[in-house]
Design a protein around this nucleic acid. Sequence first.
DNA 1: CGCCTGATTGCAAACGTTTGCATTTTTGTA
DNA 2: TACAAAAATGCAAACGTTTGCAATCAGGCG
Lengths: 348, 348
Amino acid sequence: MSEPTHETAQELAPPPERARTITDLARIAGVSPGTVSRALAGKSLVNAKTRERIEALAREHGFRLNQMASRLRRQKTGVIGVAIPLGHDRRQHISDAFFMTLLGYLADELTERGYDLMLRRVIPDRDGDWLDRFVGSGMVDGVIVIGQSDQFERIEAAAARFLPMVVWGNHQEGQRHCVVGTDNFAGGRLAAERLIAAGASTIGFLGSTDPIEFAARYAGAKSVADDKGVPIRALPTHLSPEHAADEIAAHLASDMAGIDGIFAASDMLAIACMTELQKRGIDVPGGMKLVGFDDLPIASQTRPALTTIRQDIAAGAARLADLLLRRMGGENTASVVLPPELVGRQTA
Amino acid sequence: MSEPTHETAQELAPPPERARTITDLARIAGVSPGTVSRALAGKSLVNAKTRERIEALAREHGFRLNQMASRLRRQKTGVIGVAIPLGHDRRQHISDAFFMTLLGYLADELTERGYDLMLRRVIPDRDGDWLDRFVGSGMVDGVIVIGQSDQFERIEAAAARFLPMVVWGNHQEGQRHCVVGTDNFAGGRLAAERLIAAGASTIGFLGSTDPIEFAARYAGAKSVADDKGVPIRALPTHLSPEHAADEIAAHLASDMAGIDGIFAASDMLAIACMTELQKRGIDVPGGMKLVGFDDLPIASQTRPALTTIRQDIAAGAARLADLLLRRMGGENTASVVLPPELVGRQTA
DNA sequence: CGCCTGATTGCAAACGTTTGCATTTTTGTA
DNA sequence: TACAAAAATGCAAACGTTTGCAATCAGGCG
């Protein structure tokens, strides 16, 4: 802006030549590029004094190692790919609360372990090849897939050829890919048991049953309901927050015949449902019992506080990171199924 | 498992040799690597028939271009870096709701435009060099910084040397770095005006004033309060959800002298505050007016529904992406300040 | 049939590191 | 002082693409 450059110019040290490549720096230091590389990598082969001198010069000349070149040469990237397939509901936004929470914890875990995280949102039916493209791109050392969506078969196929991949989702007997996830069937059972214990005589399952996680939740709830002779019915609803409210309103207005207990496939759906119920003056839990799924931070903050099935997201993220790193080390890890936990609050 | 390999082996076509490099594929196709490269890039210089043949072979042999090498050679990466500095509150988790929502929209925007997204969480006081390291790594074509935290000076310094960077945060007169953000001062004014109009006679500002965004919100509220002769006081609170509840409870238990209107620095704080108030039997808005900030999706789902200052996160993400891409094209863009909007619901 | 033009293709040099091996320098020992 | 061993450095070949330039080829025209 207004620095008096002309007055002091002759006094200033010349701005240090910027060393862009390791070769620039080697020339400045009067050594070979190889030595610079070893010095900056902290290898023991270089003389301690040389190393210090080179490190000082690197700082002074603002040198940054070109990661692209380094990674090409070393054939590893230090990057973990995170893919979020949006197959079952194209309108489901990547900013889905559950995925975002899981992603946040994952970022913490992986950053802590020195990895960067490359995020990719994929719309499978637009790009049938997405998983192979991602794992084969050479840009990532391993891949975490958040949510199987409706891509189970494709993931199985990729797992056969590609070791370092771990998936968040549902576990099925005999599947090949390594998965971390909550026992959704057991979670569904817990939800139904709670609703019935709270006095529900007919249950509605709010959500989609296309993604296998949700299908398992419904199946779990149904197994309990069938045992106890309680009717249960699916109330199909999309998952994107924008559309859910209207669809819930439509359900509430039409086909609720006898339903006095709702098991929502996710907390966000449960909260949207609660709002719609309250709009209609239906008391929760007086007129309608309600159980959610996930136990997002927000679940404890609603009024009445939401009874829900807790997925331990932080633990899940830690397991995902742990298993992936072990697979990257060549180990062939087994899947992990986390136990769900009923968090009894006020809505059922 | 149990495939009868020995019986049918002689019938099967030999599994196609897997082409790992462009040179493999060139050998198979009987052309030079250069031609393969051009064919796969869809350049017009190659004969259409040759191109088709090579594309078919690439599919057949499962060839994937090594992005690392490609990007090294082309000197561009197709990756946008997203950095989340956690300076002002080391305990603020990356899974902060507002950042995650913004990140989700950003991922959508950038994916749509063909870029990948590399996420990095930085703890500035552990690593004073974080920004330079990120932009100089050669791993990204441009950088988006989400939140200035307390790193204003460092960001300014980096902006002087590095064009393709856009920051989400607060705008200050005369700053050098290109920022997109809500007019926090104006937002603070809206909040205070609403509280006062609703009858508040003394205002508490719930949150930290260390990050400049929050400082500006407080300053805006204070300017209105001072004009109207309404006392206003800061109630310092950390932002991480785990700690906020206890701190809010402590405030509520001790130094609320006369406060009957609270302006919370974020919706999450507002919701936590509402829960604490309700625990104590204080009616909202009867006994305490409450205004939040952000208008997260959840704000409309609370009971009573939260009155808040809306930041248009989707629009902000779109502007961030747009400005960054233009900067990557060499343009020197000006900052964008988005107008906040009062969303009047039930809490004030 | 020869020459010219334009369309394809091949060649080889980058991009900036890392690393095995050879070479030089230093150190220790006889 | 000489020699071996150890330590430090240099050399050059990778890593897998892309791309400017040169070479080849096919076709058209006189």
